[in-house]
Each structure stands twice: as structure tokens, then as C-alpha cells.
Computed example of a mutant assay.
Amino acid sequence: MVERQVRSAVVTGASTGIGEATVRRLAQEGWKVWAVARRGERLEQLAGDTGAIPVALDITDDGGVARMVEQVAAAGGIDTLINIAGGARGTDWVADARTDDWEWMYNVNVLGTMKLTRAFLPMLREHGEGTVLNLTSTAALVSYEGGAGYNAAKAAQRAMTRALRLEEVENNLRVIEVLPGMVYTEEFSLNRLGSEEAAEKVYAGVEKPLTAEDIADIVAYAVSVPHHVNLDEIVVRPVAQAAAHKVVRKG
């Protein structure tokens, strides 16, 4: 009998939302998973539930990233990097833009993704059939009032993803982008808007917005199909959201 090779991945943003759901889904399917996020206590609970390896880390910290790569390499390495860490802050128009919010969004969504990818590329190239999946957003495709900072950060992350696909094809590296629309998660809108009341209004009246588990299912499928199959770009929205400007709300 041929022994089945265990797939292995680093998943960022693993302490909540889509990142956490992705860790749970991959672990359920038998993957070896490093779960990466800043909040170590949440990771420890996730590790207890799933068997994932917790790595408490700020992905923008170069030294921390380098130490994690060493840790992963010593444990056998990975074939897949899943960059989910990111987020939005504020809804200010450009005229009232808060520099701190814009810098945070760029650092986490763009520089964090770049630093993780840059650090793991040698390992993924050496594997021969490596995969990088970046979670961006439909905010990268369509701009809207009050979204300029997030639009800009996600558009930059998308541009980097598309360039990476061109740069690494000679190394047989598969590069996937998943672009979710309206996803109801525990913290995304709360962190962006600052209050439970404001966060709930985002989803008010929307029948069946997407869930973190919905996106985790798509991520898991995209990285599990045979390596020669590359789902370059996956745009996913709830049925109620026909477009960024067209959302059906009932009641």
C-alpha cells in the first residue's frame, strides 16, 4: 500500500473568523496545520480542539516571521501558505482619512502578506508543488464611499497576488486568490466600526450572508484539488448581494 502524504499548511489570521474556520476545516481533513495569529490564548484553545500547532505572531514582525520559518522547517516544512490575516479600520472618506487606520490596513493586508510569502517562498519552491492562497476581498474590485483605505489595501494585495502568479509559475508554484463579498463573522465589522450596534447594521435584513465556514470550505477545496489545477481567482458573494451596490434586505 502506498502511504498517503500528509498535506501541510501555515494559516494566518487563525484566532477568529475565516482563518479559524480554515484551520478547523483543514485539520478535519487530515492536514498538518500551523495556526498563526497574535492572540496566543485563542490559538491554544484552537490547538486543543484541532491538533493544530499554535504560533503566536505579529505577521508584520520580520524577526518573528524568520523564527517561525525556522520552526516550520525543523518540523518538516509546508507545501501550502494561506494568507488570511487582514482587516479594515474605519469608514472615513478620503477628506477625513485617519493616517493610523490607513497605515494599519496597509501593514496587515499588504506588508504582512508580502513578508509571510517572501519568507516561505524558498521552502515552497523546494517542495516542487507549492501553493500560496491569498484572501483578498471584492473591495479590491469595486470602490465605495468610506471604503478608500480598505479598497486601496485590498487592491494592492490583489495586485501583488497577480504578480506573484506570473513570477513563480516557472517554479510550479500555484497562486490562488479568493475574493469574498459580504461575510458575517464575529469580529470583522466590529473591529472596523467599533460597536456591536454599528456592526449589526451592516448585515441587517440580509438573508443568509456568507459565513466563515462557507469561505473555509472554498479555501480548503481550492488548495486540495490536484496541483495542476489552479483556481486563479474565486469571487464569492451571498445570493442576496448581486453586486457591491446591490444588496437585497428584507424586513
Results as ranks from 00 to 15, higher is better:
R4P: 03
S8A: 15
A9T: 08
V10T: 01
T12C: 01
G13D: 02
A14Q: 00
A14E: 02
S15Q: 10
T16E: 09
I18S: 04
I18G: 01
G19H: 04
L26Y: 01
L26T: 09
Q28K: 15
W31E: 05
W31S: 01
K32V: 00
V36N: 00
R38W: 05
R39I: 08
G40T: 00
R42H: 13
L43F: 06
L46V: 05
T50C: 01
I53Y: 07
P54Y: 02
A56S: 15
A56P: 12
L57Y: 02
L57Q: 08
G63E: 14
M68A: 06
E70F: 02
Q71W: 01
A75T: 13
G77V: 14
D79W: 04
L81G: 00
L81I: 01
I82E: 09
I84H: 04
G87M: 06
A88G: 15
V94A: 12
W104H: 08
M105H: 06
Y106D: 01
N107G: 00
N109Y: 02
N109C: 06
T113F: 03
M114K: 10
L116D: 01
T117F: 00
L121G: 11
P122N: 07
G130K: 02
T131E: 05
N134R: 11
T138M: 13
A139I: 09
L141I: 11
G147D: 13
A152K: 04
A153I: 07
A155V: 11
R162M: 13
A163N: 15
V169H: 15
L173M: 13
R174E: 06
R174W: 02
P180N: 05
E187Q: 14
E187S: 08
L190A: 00
S195Q: 07
E196L: 06
E197H: 14
A198L: 13
K201E: 15
G205E: 11
V206A: 10
P209Y: 06
T211Q: 10
A212C: 04
D214S: 00
I215D: 02
A216K: 04
A222R: 09
V223W: 03
V223F: 10
V223I: 12
S224M: 09
H227N: 12
H227E: 14
N230V: 13
L231R: 06
I234L: 12
V236K: 12
A240Q: 15
A242D: 07
A244V: 13
V248K: 15
